[in-house]
Design a protein around this nucleic acid. Structure first.
Length: 718
RNA sequence: GGACUCAUAGCUCAGCUGGUUAGAGCGUUCGAUUCACAUUCGAGAGGUCACAGGUUCGAAUCCUGUUGGGUCCACCA
């Protein structure tokens, strides 16, 4: 027996070497897997590329564990298992992280040259990418590093830009002028999924407005008002519709149209609505419908401009206070009420979103206008793929959530006013509204008016590139991998990406490749602290997975993350729990030691003479194997892990080993061999079944089992 | 306002398509331990499965409602 077993299992002493052994074997790459009679063909998972802007957190640890379990299981079952790792430049996310760093250093991106800023963030990202990769390896990930991709690889950027141009030609991308979600801190627009509604207490001001009283929370926007809207069915006001009124404000007088629109709620406020097209999404829509002009009165920094007269230069909050005070003096405030409502905020900095009128590139999602194929919009195409079962969700309820979102989604703003991203390859005219893709930099003058053109300085929303990730990593459209491994089998990701990422991938997959990008979506929940509270830096309850690995080993951490964690639900990460699975690892170690001690020099090729009890025990093993197989096939990973844990410890170690001790010491050689045979058989099978869950210790043990010299468990048959 | 989800032992949670005395880990109580393992072993205490109805021979499990958490979505200014 190897003297390794003379002391407790110390994960630290083995894991690095084992990972190296796996890497050197080449088996992470399915093209190198040994031939098998029961070859089941390709099985593919694309790793959600971690943001290359920091270290791994507990959520990463969970998804790596889940995906690795699935990959290892499939590989052992005879699939050509491919798991492609990657790294995401994570546009806005990373820029936000980097801006915080700049802030600490007393610097600001707004005082930097864009190229200089880009280069700095690139250096920062490449450094963090390395940490991230090392940490993914420490988790035991059996992914194919030879296929690793980064979202800013040159060829990937080119393909992403090509998609943009193609969509433009198909009428699925357009340049539109409308109010967009503007973060005044980060100085960029955001898509609707990048804002977060927050409940806020505000005042609702009732302002005398000509013959009306209008209710508003934003009196500082009155200088951008162009109309008053009322419901055509409102008997109080309908006689005014179509007329022009004059209203007073602290800067003088405003001439406003009175329009009638069904969208105005008769019950709310006074039933009369002031219309500010440039600074409110609804008002913008009204203005489009009724042909009203836009008056911009607030600038990109959230300050009032010259159109606001004496309030010019003031910030929104300050201007609001002053305007109200002045209106009060003029006797134009009828009343002020407390008002609780939801306001959209930047999901990164919680700054209130300022609707801002800005031309941007949009992806046409729903059906008016352009269509993707067969007259279907992108959203309809994606909804159909889920509706008819080409894509399944685990757990199933995400299906409904997905469909609801798809049926209600709005056009997707893909322009970002940040440097960290893939440049939008487009030319914009300085004189007119001409805007078009220009991949080869061929447009030097405006084809519409002959005016000067400039390069679009914006970059793509990061989800525009990561939405194409399954295609990009598999070398769509001509690569060998694309033909072999697309569509992929499973997309495993956090439930927070149900809108940001999953729909985009479905859309691009269907639009570009005419086929769903994956068949199953497995969604995991959040990893919370031991008390079930969300981890956050400010609360100081963040658990670093690498610390836990250092303390208890990767295998223990993996078990702790999996057991008791059902798909879609949040899980609590408790150090004591991990400690328990560290003890389990040692239990496996000790049981192995015992079996090996009693197997010295035994030839296991002989047929044993089994007792009835032996047969019963082996039958029990067969049932466990059958059950585990079924559970893993159905992604019931938590059940498989818990059942194997229980079987190994409380059935195999506590009962079977104990009841065989006498036979091993006995004089009856035939009976002794039967016992040795049974114990070896159970140990060997258990180690195999445990491998996807606890890859390191099982690999180490497997090589030490009789007759296994030089074998690699990772590619053994299930 | 809408959708989704959860409510099971002191704590964290399993319990798949309904089927004999409801499970795990941790914690707790009592005991053991030179014999693979104190990162151990044995024994025990502890739950009217949120509440109220219903379906069924039978429900923690399915249906309806109520209460209380959580998450997400939504332009009522």
């Amino acid at each position: 027996m190897n003297e390794l077993f003379n002391k407790p299992y110390e994960a630290k002493e083995f894991e690095e070497a084992i990972y190296k052994q796996w890497e050197e074997s080449g088996y992470f790459n399915p093209d190198n897997l040994p031939e098998r009679k029961d070859d089941k063909g390709p099985f593919t998972i694309i790793m959600p590329p971690p943001n290359a802007n920091g270290h791994l957190h507990a959520g990463h640890a969970l998804f790596i564990t889940l995906e690795d379990i699935i990959t290892r299981y499939k590989r052992m079952r005879g699939y050509k298992a491919l798991w492609i790792p990657g790294a995401d430049h994570a546009g806005f996310e990373t820029q936000v992280v980097y801006e915080k760093k700049l802030e600490k250093e007393g610097r600001s991106r707004f005082k930097m040259d864009p190229q200089e800023l880009f280069d700095e963030i690139m250096a920062f990202t490449l450094e963090n990418k390395q940490y991230m990769e090392q940490e993914v390896k420490r988790m035991g990930a059996s992914c194919d590093w030879s296929r690793e991709r980064f979202t800013l690889d040159a060829d990937i950027m080119k393909k992403v830009q090509g998609t943009f141009a193609k969509m433009y030609e198909d009428g699925l991308v357009y340049r539109g002028l409308r109010t967009v979600n503007w973060c005044t801190k980060h100085q960029t627009s955001l898509s609707d999924v990048e804002t977060e509604s927050v409940e806020k207490m505000d005042k609702l001001y009732y302002i005398k407005y000509g013959p009306f009283v209008v209710a508003t929370v934003r009196p500082e926007t009155i200088f951008g008002d162009v109309a008053v809207a009322v419901n055509p069915n409102d008997d109080r006001y309908k006689q005014y519709i179509g007329s022009v009124i004059e209203v007073e404000n602290p800067n003088g007088k405003l001439i406003l149209k009175v329009i009638g629109d069904d969208s105005v709620d008769i019950e709310f406020g006074t039933g009369a609505l002031k219309v500010t097209p440039a600074h409110d999404n609804n008002d913008f829509a009204l203005a489009q419908k009724h042909g009203l002009e836009h008056i911009i009165t607030i600038d990109q920094f959230g300050k009032l401009n010259e159109k606001a007269g004496k309030y010019a230069g003031m910030k929104i909050a300050e201007a609001r206070e002053k305007v109200v005070a002045d209106l009060e003096v003029m006797g134009l405030i009828e009343k002020i009420e407390d008002y609780k409502h939801q306001v959209p905020t930047c999901y990164k900095c919680s700054t209130t979103i300022e609707p801002r009128l800005l031309p941007q590139w949009f992806v046409k999602m729903s059906s008016q206008g352009g269509s993707a194929s067969g007259g279907q919009s992108l959203a309809e195409m994606a909804a159909k793929a889920v509706d008819d079962g080409r894509i399944e969700f685990i757990p199933d309820n995400y299906r409904k959530i997905f469909l609801y979102w798809m049926n209600n989604t709005i056009d997707w703003n893909i322009s970002r006013q940040i440097v960290w991203g893939i440049p939008i390859p487009a030319k914009l005219c300085n004189e007119c509204d001409f805007a078009a893709p220009d991949l080869e930099d061929e447009i030097s003058a405006c084809p519409k008016c002959g005016g000067e053109v400039r390069k679009d300085a914006d970059t793509f929303d990061t989800w525009f590139s990561s939405g194409q990730w399954p295609l990009l990593t598999l070398d769509f459209p001509d690569g060998k991998d694309f033909k072999t491994y697309y569509p992929t089998d499973v997309m495993e990701t956090g439930h927070d990406l149900i809108f940001k990422w999953i729909p985009r991938m479905v859309i691009f997959g269907l639009y570009l490749a005419n086929e769903v990008p994956f068949k199953t979506v497995y969604m995991h929940g959040l990893v919370n602290d031991a008390k079930g509270k969300k981890m956050s830096k400010s609360k100081g309850n963040v658990i670093n997975p690498i610390d836990l690995i250092d303390k208890f080993g990767t295998d223990a951490l993996r078990m702790g993350l999996i057991i008791g964690n059902t798909p879609g639900n949040d899980t609590a990460l408790d150090e004591n729990k991990i400690k328990g699975y560290r003890n389990f690892a040692n239990k496996i170690w000790q049981a192995t030691r015992f079996v090996l001690m009693n197997s010295e020099g035994v030839d296991f090729t002989k047929t044993p003479t089994l007792t009835d009890r032996d047969k019963e025990v082996l039958e029990e093993l067969r049932v466990v194997k059958e059950q585990t197989t079924k559970e893993l096939d159905n992604f019931l990973i938590h059940l498989a892990a818990e059942n194997l844990y229980h079987y190994f410890w409380h059935t195999f170690a506590d009962k079977i080993i104990e009841e065989n001790k006498g036979r091993l010491k006995g004089e009856d050689e035939v009976d002794k061999y039967a016992a040795q045979y049974v114990l070896n058989e159970i140990l060997r099978t258990s180690i195999k079944m445990l491998h996807p869950l606890m890859p390191f210790i099982t690999e180490e043990i497997y090589g030490n089992l009789p007759g296994n010299d030089g074998k690699i468990l990772m590619v053994e048959e299930w």
